[in-house]
Design a protein around this nucleic acid. Structure first.
Length: 1047
RNA sequence: GGGCGCUUAGCUCAGUUGGCUAGAGCGUCGCUUUUACACAGCGAAUGUCGUCGGUUCGAAUCCGGCAGCGCCCACCA
């Protein structure tokens, strides 16, 4: 049976069938037993789980192509390779898209539904997009172990999240804190700092006057004015001011010391305090180049509840915190605003209640204007944080949140034992992350100190993970390090419905009056236990363990233990246990309504996908995994947290190498994003160029750069995007298809009588095998060092330039008879397909089968003695075939040098042919003068010329003279005379140009060699080289002059 | 404001420890379709390597200044 290949490669006709073949063979599936029982080296990659918010775009296509290249390569190279697929629930992002859709479709808001009903809607969305994403990845050919597909909110992952939370909670690393968070009033949720986008907006500085109040404590002041002026961009927050601050270095500070101001509208009396944070205005010694100093008045209104810096000032000066906003960012007295303000405040105060923050801003400014307390308004362009989802300005908002203490020393830590060169406790989550860094990638003081310590301190080396985390490209290690040297605690609660519910139940229990509260270092005190015992009608621990012998819990109380009447208690349950939860509810406990930050479950991904917290074979085999490939913007959000958690929970790294791929931008250099609408669906590209074409092009673009531009064309008729950048990969695929098609047409044929045919490797054979050996070597080196572009480019050059343009063209006339050439060609194609398979899996797999039919032994019988050492055992499926071993001994510098000379001669002859407009099909006659040393070999070159230049060699040797009327093609000392092309003027012209070129290079060389410093100081071999070149160039120039004269 | 990266042919980009006349793909021009492949072949044109200065026998490459672009972090008086 022979397989007829079409003249053109049509991916759509091939890819689905190949995919089915892989599926039938379960070719993507990996078994941990291969490692644990049979000793195969493990190679695991966990996919960065795409968000289920939307379909994948080109950035995902790039990242997943690179991962697939690594996994397929390692699989062929004999590793037990497993690629773990899955998706991320992406809390806020997914909830937001669903809220938008429900609002657009039904005109309903989230709060119009019961929590479970709305979560079901999000679940449906998730199912839809998870299917879309999975289909995209499969269509791309990603060889994920689909049997293992995971989702960050499925039951096994929920179990891991719960366990992780419980352990952190029990170890005192999770705490409840009252903090200012980035509040999104539209979605009513707290955002992480990283979820806030800054936008430049045109705003105003409002200059507000606060009247001074003289108190008994203040001296009869010398201060000239009866008011001070504060500057603010957010006048509405003045309602919550609890102080006005001045810099102690301000010359006016002394005169105001001890004085107060009356806060307009509210009539609250607030102190003037002194704090270094306040920027000095230019006229009082501020930096004239500082924009803030130009706008500053020297007086800063301090609103601890509504500004993060003011919160810090408030802590320093023990100021009251007055929250004047509701969660929707309307002025409200129901969230911590003392009633007495409303007794003494102006009528205006009541009018403001219920107003939106921007409405209130206008009203307050207007009021100040009316009351002649508005000094000035200046336009001011500044950046304002916006929610990355709802795009409304965020509001710093006081709320209760759960935090992970990332810098807190984990028990067992000895005081003062910090990560060298930092303030970070060595045995803390952040300490783990820093110490995990590969020592050569550590920079600055930390790098210097830690390398010193690692040399001397045994303790530092007793951790299996220490010093092994490596970033590629290396520069990203610095991002990672800097982030961890300035750590903050991690806010893990989100006011959302879509996510892992926080497994904590809280109760405010009546405070037992008869027991003294006794503060302790750790854990609840006697009073708390008494309150609990009362609530459950017995000793709490006894009651609990009697009722639920299998359940486990941990108790904590917050730092501020509630009100005088009540104590607050938090109970974290280790496992899901409905009966226990119901019982807690009956005792007055309420489950925390919030869910966990998405990154909490993502941080566990390398663990949870392998079955943690259970002690599974998968974990033993594939954690730590080998490589994480991801985007630079989540180095801190995600990479850091996986490292911290994996070390904390399992005492090993989640992965050793972190490859950071480029960001794909559109033609204008903008990041591809859904909001800009410039994203590209990989399926569109697959539609226009095929999966392999897309994958090859993406790999070829992956250099060490951090951004890649991809100009995109949109087809108005179909709405599909495409880009001619992908022509590169599509054309290459077609080229390979046709090279194999060509080879098959010969290999499938009976050679007939081969007596007298070549049995030795000729120059071209030795040359192409040498190039093949180099290509295998370069491919391995590129893949080892994550140089995807080099990998792709190297194969392009070998297959297209060397194999197709030269070798195949040379062997065409003789291939039918030559078993040597057949064998060499089969070997070259075999190895090429293997090397290409990781990046172009469909095409190569499709061609593998017909190659197996046509050349089952790859010509081994003939080549047995000629090409030793190539190991390419043939198996049915390429994906399961072994990575080729081609010995470096095949690298043949002599053949390469000789062949290169032949190439130059052939190119020179072709140039002359073109210049004289000789029709390609017209055969011409030549003779050639070659130096004696080359005469024998040059016969071979003559044969190559006859094939590749369509000519007949009449005469060849050291003594050949140029016939009259011949044009000359010269390479070094070789001269080819193309007969009967007599056009004296044209030839003069042509040779004159060559002479000019030669003379320029003679001048350059002479200049260089006449420079004494060069001759003395440059490496001798370079000097020698220049000298040789000069001699050769002079001889050639002399020769040319003679030819021109003879014309 | 701090950090990182980029600036090389019309476009998108290579150029790995400094060393022949700076390369590729696309595009352009010419020739070639009973040819494995026109998604092809052969040949050609196109560059003060952003700019100024320094180190060096020698700089696209190393160092410094300047300009422009992009990303990340911090920042709402």
């Amino acid at each position: 049976m022979t397989t007829e290949l079409a003249a053109r490669y049509t991916p759509a006709d091939v890819e689905p069938a190949i995919l089915a073949r892989w599926n039938d063979a379960r070719a993507f599936h990996a078994d941990p037993a291969d490692t644990l029982e049979h000793g195969r080296k493990p190679y695991a990659v966990v996919i960065p789980p795409p968000n289920v918010t939307a379909a994948l775009h080109m950035g995902h296509a790039l990242n997943n192509t690179l991962q697939d290249i690594l996994v397929r390569w390692r699989r062929m190279a004999g590793y037990n390779a497993m690629w773990m697929p899955g998706t991320d629930h992406a809390g806020i992002a997914t909830q937001t898209v669903v809220e938008k859709r429900v609002l657009a479709q039904d005109g309903k808001r989230r709060t119009d539904f019961a929590r479970e009903d709305f979560v079901a809607k999000i679940q449906a969305w998730k199912d839809e997009y998870e299917a879309t994403i999975t289909n995209q990845l499969k269509t791309m050919g990603c060889s994920c172990d689909w049997d293992r597909q995971a989702f960050t909110m499925d039951p096994p992952r929920a179990k891991a999240v719960r366990e992780a939370f419980f352990r952190l909670f029990k170890d005192g690393l999770i705490y409840r804190g009252k903090r200012l968070v980035n509040w999104d009033p539209a979605t009513q949720t707290a955002l992480a700092d990283d979820e806030v986008e800054n936008q430049e907006i045109d705003g105003h500085f409002y200059y507000l006057r606060y009247p001074l109040v003289k108190t008994t404590a203040s001296p009869a002041s010398a201060y000239a004015e009866s008011y001070i002026t504060v500057a603010t961009t957010r006048p509405e927050t003045m309602l919550g001011d609890t102080a006005v601050a001045i810099n102690p270095r301000d010359p006016r500070a002394a005169a105001l010391r001890g004085m107060s101001v009356r806060l307009p509208i509210v009539n609250r009396i607030i102190p003037i305090i002194e704090d270094d944070y306040v920027v000095l205005p230019v006229e009082y010694g501020g930096d004239p180049l500082d924009t803030k100093a130009q706008f500053a008045t020297g007086f800063l209104k301090v609103t601890p509840a509504h500004d993060t810096n003011d919160w810090d000032i408030g802590l320093r000066h023990h100021l009251p915190v007055i929250n004047v906003l509701s969660p929707t960012a309307a002025i409200s007295k129901d969230h911590g605003w003392p009633e007495e303000d409303f007794a003494q405040g102006d009528d205006e105060l009541r009018n403001l209640l219920g107003m939106d923050r921007f409405e209130a801003r206008k009203a307050i400014v207007e009021w100040f204007r009316r009351e002649k307390l508005l000094a000035e308004v200046k336009p001011y362009r500044h950046s304002v944080g916006h929610s990355y989802r709802s795009h409304v300005p965020i509001e710093p908002y006081l709320s209760d949140q759960w935090y992970v203490a990332t810098t807190k020393a984990i028990h067992g830590h000895r005081a003062g034992e910090n990560v060298p060169g930092t303030e970070v406790a060595a045995e803390s989550l952040v300490g783990f992350a820093l110490r995990a860094m590969e020592p050569t990638q550590r920079g600055g003081e930390y790098g210097a100190r830690s390398r010193e310590v690692m040399k001397t301190d045994e303790v530092q080396r007793n951790r299996p993970w220490e010093g092994r985390l490596r970033f590629i490209p290396e520069r990203y290690a610095r991002n990672f390090q800097t982030w961890h040297e300035n750590p903050r605690d991690w806010c893990i609660s989100r006011q959302l419905w879509w996510g892992h519910r926080i497994p904590v139940w809280a109760a405010d229990l009546p405070r037992p009056a008869d027991i003294e509260p006794k503060p302790t270092d750790r854990g609840p005190d006697a009073q708390v236990y008494a309150a609990l015992d009362t609530a459950v009608g017995g000793k709490f621990s006894a009651v609990f363990s009697q009722k639920f012998p299998a359940a486990q819990y941990h108790l904590t109380v917050p730092d501020q233990q509630g009100s005088p009447d009540h104590v607050r208690v938090y109970i974290c349950l280790r496992h899901e246990h409905q009966a226990c939860e119901a019982w807690l509810k009956s005792c007055g406990f309420v489950q925390d309504p919030d869910v966990l930050d998405t990154w909490f479950s993502s941080a566990l991904w390398p663990l949870s996908t392998l079955g943690w917290p259970d002690d599974t074979a998968e974990l033993a085999a594939w954690n730590p995994s080998a490589t994480l490939s991801t985007a630079r913007e989540i180095i801190t959000l995600w990479v850091s947290r996986m490292v911290m958690f994996n070390i904390y929970f399992r005492d090993c790294l989640p992965f050793r190498d972190v490859f950071i791929h480029a960001m794909i931008q559109d033609g204008e250099g903008r990041k591809m994003s859904k909001s800009l609408g410039n994203g590209v669906d990989p399926l569109d590209i697959i539609h226009s160029h095929g999966s392999d074409g897309m994958r090859y092009t993406l790999a070829q673009m992956t250099t060490q750069t951090q951004d890649v531009r991809l100009p995109v064309l949109r087809d108005a008729a179909t709405g599909r995007n495409t880009s001619d950048r992908f022509d590169l990969g599509r054309n290459f695929a077609n080229k390979i298809w046709n090279a194999v098609r060509f080879a098959l047409s010969y290999l499938n044929e009976d050679p007939g009588d081969t007596t007298g045919a070549d049995t030795e490797l000729a120059l071209a054979d030795r040359w192409i095998l040498s190039r093949l050996a180099r290509t295998v070597h370069d491919t391995d080196a590129s893949l080892e060092s994550f140089e995807f572009s080099g990998y792709a480019q190297g194969l392009y050059d070998f297959i297209w330039r060397d194999l197709c343009d030269w070798y195949i063209e040379i062997v065409k006339p003789t291939l039918r008879q030559s078993m040597v050439q057949r064998g060499v060609l089969a070997v070259c194609l075999d190895v090429s397909l293997r090397l290409l398979h990781p990046v172009m899996p469909f095409l190569t797999e499709a061609l593998w089968e017909p190659l197996n039919w046509a050349a089952p032994d790859r010509g081994a019988g003939v080549l047995g003695k000629g090409v030793p050492g190539i190991q390419i055992p043939v198996s049915k499926l390429l994906i399961r075939s072994v990575w080729p071993i081609v010995p470096a001994t095949l690298i043949d510098p002599e053949a390469e040098g000789e062949f290169a000379l032949a190439q130059q001669v052939i190119t020179a002859v072709r140039q002359v042919r073109t210049q004289y407009k000789v029709p390609p099909r017209q055969q011409i006659e030549v003779s050639a003068k070659v130096p004696p040393a080359l005469a024998q070999k040059a016969i071979m070159r003559g044969l190559l010329m006859e094939t590749l230049c369509n000519l007949t060699v009449r005469d060849l040797g050291p003594k050949v003279e140029k016939p009259a009327g011949a044009a000359v093609a010269a390479v070094g000392q070789i001269e080819i005379y193309l007969h009967n092309l007599i056009q004296a003027d044209a030839e003069k012209d042509r040779l004159g140009k060559k002479l000019d070129e030669l003379q320029r290079s003679i001048a350059t060389l002479e200049g260089r060699l006449s420079n004494a410093s060069y001759v003395d100081r440059a490496p001798p071999h370079l000097v020698k080289q220049s000298q040789d070149q000069l001699v050769a160039a002079k001889a050639e120039a002399e020769n040319l002059r003679g030819q021109i004269a003879a014309l």
